[in-house]
């Protein structure tokens, strides 16, 4: 039900490596989990609205917005201090294209 192609595509999207010798096991794993959640298809959800957020509506919290006032900014050392690689004021990452 879950093809190897699907597994590989999902792995690419998630930027995870699945070594050759673990692929079949990973595929079966994913297949089992998908089969497990497939039971939801027994329910008729045709006219049901998805429930993305559980409390905002019920608590009367709509339009949680921020004023356009500067409140943050710039302890560069504290913030970039965790970067694995730096080049002065910049974070350094492997070369990208375009």
């Amino acid at each position: 039900m879950i093809s190897m192609e699907t597994l590989e595509r999902v792995g690419r999207l998630a930027e995870l490596e699945i070594p050759e010798n673990q692929r079949e096991a990973a595929r079966q794993d994913l297949e089992k989990m998908v089969a497990f959640v497939d039971v939801m298809k027994e329910l008729n959800v045709k006219d049901v609205e998805p429930l993305y957020q559980v409390t905002a509506e019920r608590a009367g919290m709509q339009n949680v917005l921020r004023d356009d006032v500067v409140t943050e900014g710039g302890d560069r050392e504290a913030l970039l201090g965790n970067a694995p690689k730096r080049r002065g004021e910049f974070a350094s990452v492997p070369k990208t294209f375009a």
Binding site: R66, D68, V70, E72, G73, G74, R76, E89, F90, A91
Partner: peptide, 21 residues
């Protein structure tokens, strides 16, 4: 004045990585 999801200034031309949080 500020970014869309945080209170950092949204100005152009500041020294690198100073308008961050």
């Amino acid at each position: 004045r500020t970014k869309i999801f945080c209170g950092c200034a949204a100005t152009f031309g500041a020294p690198p990585n100073t308008l961050v949080c």
